[in-house]
C-alpha cells in the first residue's frame, strides 16, 4: 500500500458515496445512467469473488464489501426505489457492444485460464469501459448537474491515481500487471475530455451545470 493507491481508493469511495447521497437526498436518479451502474455492479461481483478464496488484509476485504454493497444499493435506488425518476429515454447506450467484446477479450488475454482469473480479467476490461453509457448520456443531454460532475471527476481520478501507484510499484517493488495497466490507461483516457471540461468550466464560481459536447 502506498499513498497513491490509498488516494485512489479514497477517491473511488468518495465517488460512490457522492452518487448514493445525490440520489438519496434529491430522491431522484435523473441524469444517472443505470446501465453504467449495472456494469459497475457486474465488475465488482466478478472481481471480488476472491473474498471467499483469498484473504489479503482487513482493509482489502472491508473495501470490497463496501464497494459491492454500495453498487447494489445504487442499483436498488435507480431501479426500485426511485424508478420513476430514472431517465431511461436518454440511457440508450447499447451495452452488448461493451459486454460481448470484454467477455471475448478476457477469455483470450488473461494471466491464467482459470474461472476466477478469467472473471477477474473480465472485471478489469469491463470496468475500463463501464462509464461509457454515463458519458454518452451526458453528451446526449448536453449537460450534467454539478454533483454528477463531481461524481465523474472522483471516479475518473481513482484510476488515474492507480496509474501513478503502478508506476511507483514498478520502481519500488518491480511489480507490474500489464492487463491492469493497459485497461487502467484506457479507462483514464476515456475521462480526459470530461476532466478538461470539469477543470475549465467547472471552476467558474457560479457554474451549477456544465455542458459537454459530444
Amino acid at each position: 500500500m502506498n499513498v497513491f493507491r490509498l488516494a485512489g481508493d479514497i477517491s473511488h469511495l468518495l465517488a460512490i458515496i457522492i452518487l448514493l447521497l445525490k440520489i438519496w437526498t434529491s430522491r431522484s436518479c435523473a441524469g444517472i445512467s443505470g446501465k453504467s451502474q449495472v456494469m459497475f455492479a457486474i465488475t465488482y461481483t466478478a472481481r471480488y469473488l476472491d473474498l471467499f478464496t483469498n484473504f489479503i488484509s482487513l482493509y482489502n476485504s472491508t473495501m470490497k464489501i463496501i464497494f459491492l454493497g454500495a453498487a447494489y444499493a445504487t442499483l436498488y435506488l435507480i431501479y426500485v426505489r426511485f424508478k420513476a425518476t430514472y431517465d431511461h429515454n436518454h440511457d440508450t447506450f447499447r451495452v452488448e457492444f461493451l459486454l460481448i467484446p470484454t467477455v471475448i477479450l478476457s477469455v483470450l488475454i488473461n494471466h491464467d485460464f482459470s474461472p476466477l482469473e478469467i472473471l477477474w480479467t473480465f472485471s478489469i476490461y469491463l470496468e475500463s469501459v463501464a462509464i461509457l453509457p454515463q458519458l454518452f448520456m451526458v453528451s446526449k443531454t448536453g449537460e450534467a448537474e454539478s454533483i454528477t460532475s463531481h461524481y465523474l471527476f472522483a471516479l475518473g481520478s481513482y484510476r488515474a491515481l492507480y496509474i501513478i501507484n503502478w508506476v511507483y510499484r514498478y520502481y519500488a517493488e518491480g511489480f507490474y500487471d500489464l492487463i491492469a495497466i493497459v485497461a487502467g490507461v484506457v479507462q483514464t483516457v476515456l475521462y480526459c475530455d470530461f476532466f478538461y471540461l470539469y477543470i475549465t468550466k467547472g471552476s467558474r464560481a457560479n457554474a451549477t451545470e456544465m455542458s459537454i459536447e459530444a
Binding site: 473511488h12 472481481r47 489479503i56 473495501m63 477477474w120 518491480g174 500487471d177 491492469a180
Partner: peptide, 10 residues
C-alpha cells in the same frame, strides 16, 4: 515481472 494470480488491489 510478478504475474501471480493473487490480486492485492481493489
Amino acid at each position: 515481472s510478478i504475474q501471480d494470480t493473487t490480486h492485492d488491489e481493489l
